[in-house]
Write a protein that binds this DNA or RNA. Structure first.
Length: 497
RNA sequence: AGGGCGUUGGGCAAGUGGUUAAGCCAAUGGAUUCUCAUUCCAUGAUCACGGGUUCAAUUCCCGUACGCCUUACCA
């Protein structure tokens, strides 16, 4: 109470490096980021690597790398340092030790000599009897003799927090509102593992306090950890941060997104590789469980920062809607400057082996025009491969016609149209869209066919598909030789019959 | 099983004690276009169910159902 000046907002994103950055992580990070930036506060990244068995190689690096890619930046972390480091929990072991020793000394924590197998058996027994799985409190009040006996057996203890009995633990959650737990429903949980490393629930409390966190926005799966953490804060006489538990992101089966869930693509890196733009992903993820005031849905980072309000976080789970993501990404693609769009899409064609990595100027300008044909409709980068297929897959002769295409070619005006078109095209001295367009008009006059009956036969014969970009430009880019060859092959077949 | 939380059209989601219950995605229909795409227009909700409080409830309260999270020497 000494300092009545408004406290600086400090929030953190605290991933465990057990995997790569996925949608759920990213969302947590984004909301914390927006919260901090909106308030003009600090955004910190802390690595929670206390579960060494599950840490994966490259996990930490991936988290930071793709957060950066999404457009986030941070004030304190393992890479940029800061006044409250270290920011990796395994480098803070000495710090934790001091605090759990304090709890032990005060009798607020105790050593537990139960083995994992014993605990597991206990839990299974409880379940079998329809009881809530709960630690029994067996080692709560061990005598010196018992302790000596366990030690003599060579058992290594864990340290458990002594949960105060008959206490209501309450807090006002930014998103859930007033939440209340009974301490009796929480069992004495382990704060230090047998190997001397603290558990998550202990380390967070120490770190959040020492790092002066003012708010904690995290996933709803942590809500039942909150009373444990609050009781620890109380044991130390510290003030807990303000909590906000965000709803989970669920899959089509309404299940929490898990890393093992393959029904939807989960990792940010995968989206990047498929050709989703960071701004679009950021925009989309931000709208998962949060909504702005007005009717707009597309926002820039700065707009989000300006309007972000944690009170508008939703209480009910958000389903990951892939088609909306694609739509949104498409919106961003449409807005790209042409040259950026070209630089963005060409690599997908190169990777697919459809274009050489070292293109000649001519190839490059051709590819540029092809790709530009699709800017209006592209949803994500990789889609260019499939969508522009007609310019790369040139063996349409071996390709079976669809029902509709057969129907188109069955029209009795088809031969007239094709032969007239073929004749007129052959007479062209210049093979450009500008030159081809008038030819279509000429054929129209000559054959008295128009619209669908005029265009469709030309399209199917020349491009192999009833769908595609504007015909004159498509034909130009397909190239004179190929188009004329296809026409003639077609006409030859007709006369042969 | 105990604890916690949720439920507005196919997916999100705004909002209110008395409203024509926003908007976006999707779907369908239509207009434009040679087609696809784009663009534009149009179409849909007894606000989970049952009870209460109230002149009035989708909005407040209680219950039920359903769903999810959690009850680890994981975070």
């Amino acid at each position: 109470m000494v300092n009545m000046v408004a406290e600086e907002v400090r929030v953190r994103y605290a991933p465990s490096p057990t995997g790569f950055l996925h949608i759920g992580n990213a969302r947590t990070a984004i909301f914390n980021y927006l919260f901090a930036r909106h308030a003009g506060g600090k955004f910190i990244i802390r690595i929670e690597d206390t579960d060494q068995k599950r840490n994966v190689e490259g996990g930490e690096e991936s988290q930071l790398k793709y957060l950066k890619w999404l457009g986030l930046d941070w004030d304190e972390s393992v890479d940029v340092g800061g006044p409250y480091g270290p920011y990796r929990q395994m480098e803070r072991l000495d710090i934790y030790k001091k605090y759990w020793q304090e709890l032990l000394d005060k009798g607020l924590a105790y050593k537990c000599y139960c083995t994992e197998d014993e605990l597991k058996a206990e839990r299974e027994d409880q379940m079998a009897h329809g009881q809530t799985p709960h630690y029994s409190g067996k080692c709560r009040n061990l005598t010196q003799e018992q302790i000596a006996k366990y030690e003599a057996e060579g058992r290594k203890p864990t340290i458990r927090f002594r949960i105060p009995s008959d206490q209501a633990v309450e807090f006002d959650d930014i998103v859930k509102g007033h939440v209340s737990f009974q301490s009796n429903d929480v069992s004495d949980f382990v704060i230090v593992k047998q190997n001397g490393v603290p558990t998550y629930n202990f380390a967070v409390v120490i770190d959040d306090h020492l790092m002066k966190m003012t708010h904690v926005l995290r996933g709803e799966e942590h809500i039942s950890n909150t009373p444990k953490q609050i009781m620890l804060f109380q044991a130390f006489g510290w003030k807990p941060p303000v909590y906000g538990h965000m709803t989970l992101i669920v899959n089509e089966n309404h299940k929490k997104l898990s890393k093992r869930d393959h029904s939807i693509v989960q990792f940010i890196e995968q989206y990047k590789n498929m050709g989703f733009l960071p701004e679009a992903l950021f925009n989309f993820i931000t709208l998962l469980g949060w909504s702005p005031k007005g009717e707009e849905e597309i926002f820039s980072m700065n707009e989000f920062i300006k309007m972000f309000d944690a009170n508008r976080l939703s209480k009910s789970p958000a389903m990951f809607d892939k088609s909306k993501l694609e739509w949104m990404n498409g919106q961003y693609i449409k807005k790209m400057p042409k040259d950026a769009y070209v630089r963005f899409t060409l690599p997908y064609l190169i990777d697919a082996g459809l274009l050489p990595a070292d293109m000649t100027e001519a190839q490059k300008s051709w590819a540029t025009r092809v790709v530009l044909l699709y800017q209006e409709q592209l949803h994500y980068g990789e889609e260019i491969v499939k969508i522009s297929d007609m310019f790369f897959n040139k063996n349409i002769e071996n390709q079976a016609l669809t029902k509709d295409e057969k129907k188109i070619l069955a029209g009795d005006q088809v031969n007239d149209v094709i032969s007239a078109f073929n004749r007129e095209l052959k007479g062209l001295t210049e093979w450009t869209a500008e030159a081809i367009a008038p030819v279509i008009k000429t054929v129209q006059k000559e054959t008295k066919q128009r619209g669908w009956k005029l265009y469709m036969p030309m399209r199917v014969v020349a491009t192999g598909s009833q769908h595609g970009p504007e015909l004159p430009e498509a034909l130009e880019l397909l190239g004179r030789d190929l188009v004329l060859k296809r026409m003639e092959t077609y006409l030859d077949k007709q006369t042969a019959v």
